[in-house]
Design a protein around this nucleic acid. Sequence first.
DNA 1: GTCTATACACCGATAGAC
DNA 2: GTCTATCGGTGTATAGAC
Lengths: 194, 194
Amino acid sequence: MVEKCKVMDKKAKVLDAALKLFVEFGFHNTPTSKIAKEAGISSGTLFYFFPTKDELVVALYLDIKSKLGCEITESISQETSFKEILKKYYTTTLDWAKEHRDEFKFMEQFNSSPYLKKIAEDEIQKYVKPLKELLQNAIDEGVLKNMDLEILFTLISGHTFSINQYLIISEPQESKREQIISETFDLLWQMISA
Amino acid sequence: MVEKCKVMDKKAKVLDAALKLFVEFGFHNTPTSKIAKEAGISSGTLFYFFPTKDELVVALYLDIKSKLGCEITESISQETSFKEILKKYYTTTLDWAKEHRDEFKFMEQFNSSPYLKKIAEDEIQKYVKPLKELLQNAIDEGVLKNMDLEILFTLISGHTFSINQYLIISEPQESKREQIISETFDLLWQMISA
DNA sequence: GTCTATACACCGATAGAC
DNA sequence: GTCTATCGGTGTATAGAC
């Protein structure tokens, strides 16, 4: 047990260091030697935990994805009406992105890179399936416009993503921020609700 | 003149080759030697035109940006009403993305990479300024909801971008495609119009 | 302007001691 | 599990002939 904790700790330190450096310099301009140094370990130890650099990159991505997934699942568990659930989805994602700026930036970089091919399709779907099921129900119940599920999903993701970009760049004060989130959710809702 | 044409031709070939390889393998997994080979020239010649690999990457980005900019400027010149202009903006962007898949994929990769820092802010703004002015006018005239210009711009870009992603992945038939574009534009319009 | 040949730095990964 | 030392491969960029 003690052993395992130690392992996780080192692994986590490597992932932390890698995240920080990847976001600043990009995957390729970040040598494993620098990651090891930043993590406070030797190069040999890094490769003991992650057999290749690629595996490290992928592991980091999956780690972040799962953390965000947990956060969202937890936050929506208390809501009941569909609109409230969706709003929670929206706000939680934006809040998480604010508190985990590097993680978001990294995911963005990863998603639009050829690395994405290395991830199995079902691994990707795992995190979006719950939301898609929710949306399908809402369509069936006449809460949302009767449109193609994939388009609907795309619209919501795109909206969330772009408002997130805006919030990151403009850095509004907390009260202003909440207002923007609330108002842009209303706009989204207006677009997709029946 | 003949000299200049020859130069442009070689440069263009390098940019073509680089685009193709970057999209498939990513920036870092594409050595300059392979770019030169794909372009049918020697490594030395490549560095004669582009002093560093970074400059090549940036030049490619600016080249693509400017081509898309031209296309849009041209296409909207004949429209008169604001709604028609915006729709033309929307459809032209999506059509261009369809015909220039690699270019779009590359821009996406570039935009979410640390390379973006290498581009001057005004260089980026150059291409978005015309649209922003248009939007400001529409707000002032009461055609669009009175909201923050930057948010409005973000919303439109995000919408366009995400529908583009959807169209690329789902590859609908031409008639279906046109229907999707038309309907999603209506959704966008519903969201932003006064 | 274009080529060939090559310098030389760097990086990912391994070997082997502890 | 962790370190140090190092190898082999690769990639950017240059030098110099044509």
